[in-house]
Design a binder for these strands. Structure first.
Lengths: 173, 173
DNA sequence: GGTCTAGATGCGACACTGTTGCATATGGAC
DNA sequence: GTCCATATGCAACAGTGTCGCATCTAGACC
């Protein structure tokens, strides 16, 4: 499958950015919540921090297995679930594909969350302005008392390329 | 599971609304595209037209089986796929749940598509104004040459109730 | 009505994502 | 070091969706 796998931005360690290591910060918060800091959870955080891009549970499993062999697939899901509950990790649904995860924006020193749009035809993922849904969020809050989670799902549609080339639609004309 | 199953609005036949039967109209369009009109496809259209609400592939399978026993589960998926390609049916991803389908808005004589938001905590689905994403669509088109399909996914967040009752955070307990 | 064929279907097997129950291991408090 | 609640490993399972292939059928043509 070539469905626009999010490429793992090879993070050249922020270096002198002055930011605390996002993993350290996350660990601090896990303890603050009275939850346990385990090898699996730390490994998941480390993988996400190193990629700084969307990763599926399976991709995380593969990466974690490299650093901490023996960690079970189920544990990845449970760790992600726990980290999401604590607000340290954000889950996003990318169209049909499996859920994708990333570190919470504030752990990376970013104020806006990362928003993406997904092409329904070619699956390409495209990052868009983090404030794209601000007005929508305000309207949902005002009119429906609904608190929007802008990162929850990626919006779908068709990218420029696929709009121009209406795709084979099925061999037929 | 009680995850806000979309209740099938019992459609009291539009009667003298003057609208053509959406199924007839859809059938016309299938033929116009040179594709075949089959029992399975017609049954799927009929089920969607009668419910006029979101239905999952499985729910459609159950309903179709009532009207046309013997139709295979796989056929439902293939029929939905074909009908979606022809623009007669719209697929929406509701959070984590299975894809949900509805007839295209124009077949029902509606100009705006139906938009929904889904609560990540309780799963409740809430219909919102059809023009909610108009400005976002314009901006995506202008800045990213991306043609938004507003019905592709439902936005997620937290409903009023779940915002007030921050939920056990720990279903396990 | 009969014939023909591309395309639709039935069927079964499968892949993938995610969950659950339970026994065991372990983090962290003491 | 001891202890216990919780995290984990494991295995089995559920739900959604896809694929290959043999068969059937809608629709065109006679």
């Amino acid at each position: 499958m070539d469905r626009g796998t999010p490429q793992p931005t090879p993070t050249p360690d922020p270096g002198g950015s002055g930011l605390p290591d996002p993993v350290d910060e996350a660990v601090r918060r896990i303890r603050a919540h009275g939850e346990r800091v385990t090898i699996a959870r730390t490994a998941v955080l480390r993988v996400l921090a190193d990629s700084k891009a969307y990763l599926t549970a399976d991709q995380i499993f593969v990466e974690v297995s490299r650093a901490a062999p023996g960690v079970h697939r189920t544990t990845i899901y449970r760790a992600l679930d726990a980290l999401e509950r604590l607000g340290l990790v954000v889950q996003t649904r990318m169209g049909q594909d499996a859920a994708a995860y990333q570190l919470a924006a504030y752990l990376l020193g970013e104020s806006d969350p990362r928003l993406h749009v997904v092409c329904r035809a070619c699956g390409r993922v495209q990052e868009v302005a983090g404030d794209l849904l601000d007005a929508v969020a305000r309207r949902l809050a005002a009119e429906y008392a609904f608190r929007l989670d802008p990162t929850g799902v990626a919006l779908t549609g068709h990218c420029d390329t696929c709009t121009r080339n209406p795709l084979p639609t099925r061999g037929r004309a």
